[in-house]
Nucleic acid binder design. Structure first.
Lengths: 331, 331
DNA sequence: GTCCTTTACGTAAGCGCTTACGTTGATTTC
DNA sequence: GAAATCAACGTAAGCGCTTACGTAAAGGAC
């Protein structure tokens, strides 16, 4: 049995109240008492029981994070930012890999609520109405990263997907490309799917280039789908000289496909990605991509959640294009 | 304020004991009482407070995981296995990114202990003596993944690094390579460093090939170091026709370096990796590598930790080589 | 009908803390 | 020197649960 506060109190010859005060750095004891108690604590190896503390303080110093996929580079980077920031502020983080599954998500929301966590960060995932309902009932602070809410006014942190995608496309156009394909996410994805498609289309339109449905393919942001989409593109729209992929993973998939088919990047085909995860840097050739400050978004999310910085409402983070070697200038 | 069990009891006209019994599926009430109470619970939206429960039950249904680096593919895969398995068993997981930092690690160990978690999984990291001391004091079940303990008898799950590395090297030899370089981890790393170097050396020796210190370089398992080591190797030992990298990340780094220098893989140089993370599959060319069942090791770790399966002591998991396109047969 | 067992509860203690409030003795104020 | 103030504690309630124990009523055995 681990020693409790009353064991310490008994040993020190004081009351539990005094021990508690000393532990919590409040006032109401002499330096000598403090010294004595601290010694006893050391000696007995006493560690306060955070559960008992949580029960009375109504704070557990832990937050929960919902992620649609634990194993993607995107999630990892986000999580690293979150964990780091949380640790600095003396919070622990519980991870919940929802696998984009509705039932699972609700389960997690319930568990987190029962465990009396102090806040939740939800990432990357479109909030179904059911989620918002349960969230509303929970009365726990929530902040969103890379996603937004539709009914509730939940603060979020993300970049402007439409803008970013517009810029990526314009970047390609600026490099002289006129036949530009897209490897997008799902049409039905209102977060990273649709807006990015719209940005791409608008950029084409604004530059008097024609939009062709043949040149748009739909993946799921993951590697395999990137390969498949690239293959499709090569077949349906062989005239394209550049493609904009809505995620680095898909861009890398495109790279792999091109490699297999003997299509040289960037000589025969230029590719630009999205996210700027480490796989962009590691790709061959290194991938030009639109940078999202993922790690920082994670850090900021917990600061917002725990109100350590004065932040008002939601935040659109800046993005920019990082030029590497997968896009070439033509003409 | 959220309703408590006594609110439910009052509303239902029974005692808290009865409500508790109903919630916990014990006996001692009529079907009618149960029905009634369940209705009230539904109606009031009552959720048991896991903190209060934890205080009396001395179980929190949460475990902690220590990882040296949250953002590597290896860690992610491991974590996914752990999280998944934990969720199935109704446990939550708290993540702790130690960044291989001693002070941080101890901090985490303390926090986890205070939070009364039910078990700890420590991954990939060499257990310093201080860690083992604190672990011993904590009286919390621990299982190790991809690492072992030196003083304490802590159960572990890993593969035989020496054997795996021996086989990887022999695989290369089997493909006709005689001048084989190595991109290893640190010499001082007793887990994934030394044993893999030893395995490599032994395989060479057993096949009457000479060992040259010029052909061994030392990285830190990460991408950048892989690039650097490859560069070094190209300079110091240009005669090599193959290299064994002690991690996929370093192998990919080697790939990038080779690409930059115009060295064709596998035509001019063969490369074999270690881990079989997703980056091996995504590499160009796809990387031949030593497969570790990472995800399964994660799953198994929590099963061991929570004693759901009859397991005796530690486990050496099987490994095998997965052949992709980065190694070519010569002669 | 009596005695015993069983079922269906209620009572209250206790898990390990925090904290409002009370008490005591010393110090200050005038 | 009496009254007021204050520092340094101790007492005990309470956070939201679980559970050992007690009790009353019902049921069964004879």
């Amino acid at each position: 049995m681990r020693p409790t506060i009353s064991d310490v109190a008994k040993q020190s010859g004081v009351s539990t109240a005094t021990v508690s005060r000393i532990i919590n750095g409040q006032s109401g004891y002499t330096a000598k008492t403090r010294q004595k108690v601290l010694e006893i604590i050391q000696e007995m190896g006493y560690k306060p029981n955070a559960i008992a503390r949580g029960l009375v303080n109504k704070r557990t110093n832990t937050i929960g994070v919902l992620l649609p996929s634990l194993s993607s580079r995107l999630s990892s980077a986000l999580l690293k930012g979150i964990e780091n920031s949380a640790h600095q502020l003396d919070y622990s983080v519980i991870i919940c890999d929802t696998e984009s599954d509705g039932k699972r998500t609700i389960e997690y929301l319930d568990v987190l609520s029962e465990k009396q966590i102090d806040g939740i960060i939800i990432t990357s995932e479109w909030l179904k109405d059911v989620y918002e309902e349960t969230i509303a009932k929970m009365k726990i602070p929530v902040v969103l990263v890379l996603t937004t809410s539709s009914h509730l006014q939940i603060p979020y942190i993300k970049v402007d997907d439409y803008q970013a995608s517009y810029q990526a496309t314009e970047y390609l156009i600026g490099k002289g490309h006129k036949e530009i394909g897209m490897i997008s996410g799902s049409k039905t994805d209102k977060l990273a799917g649709l807006p990015r498609i719209e940005g791409y289309k608008q950029a084409l339109t604004d530059n008097s280039l024609t939009i062709s449905e043949n040149r748009i393919t739909y993946g799921d942001f993951a590697y395999r789908s990137g390969m498949r989409c690239m293959e499709e593109l090569l077949k349906k729209a062989p005239e394209i000289t550049a493609v904009f992929a809505a995620s680095d993973e898909m861009a890398v998939g495109a790279l792999s496909c091109a490699y297999k088919k003997g299509v040289k990047v960037p000589d025969d085909l230029s590719i630009i990605g999205y996210d700027d995860t480490q796989e962009a840097e590691m790709a061959i050739p290194p991938l030009t991509t639109v940078h999202q400050p993922i790690y920082d978004m994670g850090k900021m999310a917990v600061e917002m959640l725990l109100n350590t910085k004065e932040t008002v409402g939601s935040i659109l983070m800046p993005h920019h294009i990082v030029e590497r070697d997968s896009v070439r200038k033509i003409e």
